[in-house]
Design a protein around this nucleic acid. Structure first.
Lengths: 203, 203, 203, 203
DNA sequence: TATGAATGAGGGTTCATTCAT
DNA sequence: CATGAATGAACCCTCATTCAT
């Protein structure tokens, strides 16, 4: 399996670094190769083409994050707590790797439609995770019975995403994680949690 | 004023149509010219360069939308009603011009950072509009006193944007405007409106 | 006759000024038209095409100079005096119109082969003038009997031309006309005048 | 070093040939590449841009000529002999490579001011060589004590240059080298050599 | 496995010239 | 005579990918 060889991750990390520093359109394959310390041709021993580097980058970084976060979330008791953990972990992951944050929030979005469709495939796992939290919240009465899960998921993901993008655009001048609790409260309210008890944020 | 000559809008409309059909990276100037029924060189009598077409496109379509919607919203009495009108008009505008929806939600986001910064300038007017609604809602007690306007704005814009993008990605298989009221309800709840009275959506 | 209409010279003068200021490749027809205070299309009522402006420019400025200098030179008695007058007038003409000097010595030489062939046609009158001086000098014993007129002419024209070009390249930091007498002496020597009497420069 | 790889000279030679045949403005990069037997992109592995090909061409051909001729001239005893060698070598070099003659005398002069300034840099070495010959001739009494070196150099270079250009313009109908001795005699006279002894051309 | 020299397709923009008014 | 909006051909350069070593 090529993915297990050291140069595989070496190239992906080089891609993140080069794209974050120079932007998507300045991230030539030769530049990534140089940063990774390999020859241009070597890239093609590990990746089908340039697009494949970017997809793999997203899969490795986001895919592995989703896999990692899933069991941790499963350990929490209430949907509210799960949602808070989701938001906070999301913010923490991107705060801790600002290059990755720039790449996923700004640069990778300049890619063509095809690539973005494939990125969406990876995100589906994340959407499913959100849906499960919402479903649980509906079923155990934490959230409104009439909650439309698809719309609520768009609200949650859209809000998180817009929040991170704004933070990046403001050159990360503030601590992203300080927003976890207020954003959580907003979203809980949105889901109808505020009507039947104390805010879960206060838990 | 060049903007008043008929070919100006003719070229912008051609750009929307060509980009929607072929994608951002396939939208060669010569293709846009052909679609507009003018010579390649004529483009440069009306626009500084290719990027200028795209900026102008966004300014004309979104900028004029913002200007148009502003007084209509001002006519509404409550913040909740204003928010509903904002959402519903946003959805309606993009439903009525699906090419424009594709261009603004998917294609224009592939542009370089510079262009996107200029697009953000145009969007600032929209953000300000949202902020005003939120401020009004806070002041007249419709929304929670503790509402963080910046975060609430990110929630509102992020949710609307994500909802439209999902609709586009699903090839517009459903009516976007049917989502106006449920999205409105979600967002109102998020703003803390549900805690102190009947949902404004029911107004 | 188009040449008698005021706009004809107006356009030529505008061309000299625009080319001197901005260089040959920046001298677009529209720029010349603007400088001349006429519409682009008007240029084509007076000139066949852009090249025709440049040829006419050279014909008018250099051709008229040659016609003017010819009778003055004819009035001088010795070949040596005639040569001095030729050199000094040449330097004076270009000193007095530095724009023209820049255009003829530097900018017009960037034109294509065809244009330069036509310029050479105009210069033939000048070459003939030099040849006549040389022939007279040979016949009356001022110059060497063995002088090759063609080569001597190349020396004279080449020296004058190189001297003016060097002066232009040095940004006209010195008075070109101070070189008339020493250059004259060099060239007289070259023609074998120094062997049979006092320097003609001292006449 | 890129200059040592065979394709470097291959491309330069192709450029000379293409420019000589089709003219400066018709010498597209793709045409030069084709003539050199390489792909368009390969040009850019050896040269920064198109202008760089032309500068390099001049440096390689004229620069290397100047370096080569310098020690040979140093071996001659008198300034007169040195001058003859300079003229004759100059004529020989261009006679032996008529494409190069066309390119340097006619085509390269159509280039923009910037390129011509760089060409002048290369020529400065040549001017220095002429100056050294003149200085030596003045000091050892071969040339007139009152000789102005700068003006004499302009005469020498101007005469040689004009002679070659006339030869090119006449489509090389005669042997350029037959002019070496008579031109030499003209220039020696010009430098005041004829006044104090037998012509060095007769040596 | 690894290299890196070589490939070649593809597009934004300028500007001399025209022609309907 | 005069205008100036419209035309459209023409070209340099980049960079993802290949393949001989």
């Amino acid at each position: 399996m090529k993915k297990n060889r050291p140069k595989y991750m070496q190239i992906i990390d080089a891609a993140v670094s080069v794209i974050a520093e120079n932007g998507y359109h300045q991230a030539q394959v030769s530049r990534i190769a140089k940063q990774a310390g390999v020859a241009d041709g070597t890239i093609y021993l590990y990746f089908k083409n340039k697009e494949d580097i970017l997809i793999s980058l997203f899969e490795e970084k986001m895919g592995s994050y989703i896999e990692k976060i899933e069991p941790v979330i499963a350990g929490k008791e209430s949907a509210a707590e799960k949602l808070l953990l989701l938001i906070d972990s999301h913010f923490r992951m991107l705060s801790e790797d600002r290059d990755l944050a720039i790449v996923t929030q700004l640069e990778l979005r300049q890619s063509n439609k095809e690539l973005r469709l494939k990125i969406n495939e990876v995100l589906k796992g994340y959407m499913k995770l959100i849906d499960e939290i919402l479903l649980e919240g509906k079923q155990n009465g934490e959230f409104s019975r009439s909650l439309d899960i698809r719309l609520a998921r768009q609200m949650i993901f859209g809000t998180i995403d817009e929040t991170v993008t704004t933070w990046i655009m403001n050159e990360q001048k503030y601590e992203l994680n300080t927003l976890s609790i207020p954003i959580h409260e907003l979203l809980l309210n949105g889901c109808g949690a505020g009507t039947s008890g104390p805010s879960a944020s206060q838990v």
